[in-house]
Design a protein around this nucleic acid. Structure first.
Length: 558
RNA sequence: GGACCCGUGGCUUAGCCAGGAUAUAGCACCGGGCUUCUAACCCGGGGGUCGCGGGUUCGAGUCCCGCCGGGUCCGCCA
């Protein structure tokens, strides 16, 4: 929709530039503006080279530009700016297109792998982990919406010391019958405590790790059973938040199938490795890293980084775009990893880094048992949501109120996370988490429910003429609906899901204004009623597509 | 000590990568709106030296340099 309008504007503008003999890239030279539907400031950029005032240049381009087209009504010259306005037929086209479900598919194609969450299987997800999950899952949904074929993947760190600690704990302590990931955490925390008191026992953990790496069958069974048990709990939390992974990739696979050895060979062949104190290291000082990267320990065992290089080689070979979501603590290792991949000539991943979520008294730690679990958060928010639904819809039965509370709770948690740019460090705050005001999912869900309610009461929709939708609220709503594809396109390119959250709020806002000022069911004459009904349906579709892409359910009534 | 990220009204936040026309919203505060399609809504008001100082530019919240404050990282851990 909007992208079609934009393409035509580009064409018209380009014609003007060509006729003036000017060549300038139109990339990023068109902006949304409060003064027009699209606006350009190219004249400013051309000014120094042409030694003419931006105003004169704009006037020259303007007078040579192509004529208005299907979707472009007119361009106007305002000083140094050239502003473009949508045509009536474009607005009509948007309303028509938005009647169907297939209006929301993007133009991109190709395969993408998105790795997210990938928390160690040593306990439940906490409120820090789910920032990764929500950002990751929203990116998955945005990329799918944009047209890509997307595989979402959980990378299981089964070869680390954490997992070995869990296995040792399961060997020596009893798992209680609480949710699997919580039971595993208790064993893991207890194992740490015991190791602190009796450090000599840590040799047993080392032995477990050694046996696992050498693929001792009995040890393999133990590790995988423990990890799978933890993951089953993690998975149920993710499912509750509408997050599903298409596949799980186990770190150990790359050691056992020879990929890690292959990577080590490749690295040695670059001539950039050195043997220092018996350990194989990659010197990255040329690339600006102080310390060299250790690839293989003196005792011959592999390291996380090396296994990760093998994993990335696999990703690069199987997908056109490689995306991963990582916490800020991984910035340095991720940069080193990308540098090593560059040296090897392997495609580097696009890394989305999110800053930390801290508690008022410091950062979270699974090992120390200091965290607020995602389950606890969801339970509390759901409880609060149930109170709110009951207050607002006391006449509805309990099943209804429970169902709505569940959808509102998940939506509120997801929206609260995704609305903030990933590079902002945040502080977890119960008060804010339990607040369902405007900057929150229920605001958007509510708009959707209102639209559904009107459509339900209206019954079947007759023929309609979108040309009758002419007042400010109608037009600004149509324009916002049109913007969906632009937002998806940008968010998919830049991997910034918070842009979609902002859009969702703006869309709901404009629908609410339309709802407030333009009666639909009682509109006279019937032709106007039908046109408005069509706009309600277009809005409902846009809201539901937006919510779906945010991983938030769109209740028809709430 | 070095590297990266952040600093926008009392609090939270968009805009910054690709510099342009009155700086985006929410919460809180003050005031108004339900015989009218769900008031989880809408309207009005007050509140901003865009951390500080330089620089580039016709023009800087946006780019560059320095500083200050906060976060994160700098293991033969993962």
């Amino acid at each position: 929709m909007f992208l079609d309008f934009m393409s035509e504007v580009e064409g018209i503008l380009k014609e003007g530039l060509d006729r003036c003999g000017l060549s300038v890239s139109l990339e990023n030279s068109l902006d949304l503006s409060p003064h027009a539907d699209l606006s350009t400031t190219v004249a400013f950029r051309l000014s120094p080279a042409l030694k003419k005032s931006p105003k004169d240049i704009a006037a020259e381009i303007y007078s040579s530009m192509g004529s208005p087209s299907r979707w472009v009504d007119r361009a106007e010259l305002v000083g140094p700016y050239i502003n473009f306005h949508m045509s009536r037929s474009f607005l009509d086209h948007v309303v028509l297109e938005a009647q169907g479900e297939d209006a929301w598919r993007g133009r991109m194609s190709g395969s993408v792998i998105v790795e997210h969450t990938s928390a160690n299987p040593d306990g439940p997800l906490h409120v820090g982990h789910i920032r990764n999950s929500v950002i990751g899952d929203t990116i998955v949904r945005i990329l799918r919406r944009a047209g890509y074929s997307v595989e979402s993947q959980y990378y299981v760190n089964d070869m680390g010391r954490q997992t070995a600690m869990v296995v040792w704990g399961c060997d020596h302590l009893d798992l209680d019958d609480s949710k699997p990931d919580h039971a595993i955490a208790r064993v893991y925390i207890a194992a740490h405590r015991i190791m602190n008191e009796r450090p000599e026992l840590s040799a047993e953990v080392d032995e477990l790790m050694r046996r696992y790496e050498s693929r001792d069958p009995e040890t393999v069974e133990k590790f995988q059973r423990a990890a799978k048990y933890a993951i089953s709990g993690i998975e149920s939390t993710l499912h509750r938040m509408n997050i599903h992974h298409d596949s799980y990739k186990w770190e150990s696979e790359f050691v056992w199938d020879g990929s890690v050895d292959e990577i080590l060979d490749m690295l040695e062949r670059t001539g950039r490795t050195v043997l220092k104190d018996g350990a194989l290291q990659l010197d990255l000082s040329e690339e600006g890293f102080e310390k060299s990267l250790v690839l293989r320990r003196a005792d011959g065992t592999t390291l996380y980084t090396t296994r990760d290089l093998a994993y990335h080689k696999w990703k690069a070979e199987n997908y056109e775009r490689v995306v991963e979501v990582l916490g800020a603590d991984h910035k340095l290792v991720s940069a080193q990893l990308r540098t090593a991949l560059r040296i090897l000539g392997i495609k580097e991943p696009e890394v989305v880094i999110f800053e930390f979520v801290s508690l008022p008294d410091g950062s979270m730690s699974t090992r120390r048992g200091k965290f607020i679990s995602a389950d606890e958060l969801l339970d509390e928010v759901e409880k609060q949501a149930y109170i709110e639904v009951t207050k607002r819809r006391p006449e509805m039965d309990e099943d209804f109120r429970k169902e709505v509370a569940g959808k509102v709770a998940v939506g509120a948690v997801r929206y609260d996370i995704v609305r903030v740019s990933a590079d902002k460090a945040t502080m977890f705050d119960w008060k804010a988490a339990l607040d369902f005001e405007k900057l929150s999912a229920p605001f958007i869900q509510y708009s959707h429910a209102r639209a559904c309610s009107i459509l339900k009461k209206a019954g079947d929709l007759d023929e309609f003429d979108p040309g009758l939708l002419r007042d400010d609220h109608e037009i600004s709503l149509i324009k916002k609906i049109a913007e969906f594809d632009l937002v998806i396109d940008r968010a998919a390119r830049e991997l910034k899901p918070h842009q979609l959250a902002t859009y969702a709020r703006e869309l709901a806002e404009r629908f609410n204004l339309f709802y407030r000022y333009d009666p639909v069911l009682d509109a006279k004459p019937d032709e106007l009623r039908n046109a408005r009904l069509a706009l309600v349906r277009a809005s409902r579709n846009a809201l539901s597509a937006t919510l779906e892409t945010l991983g938030i359910e769109a209740p028809e009534s709430m």
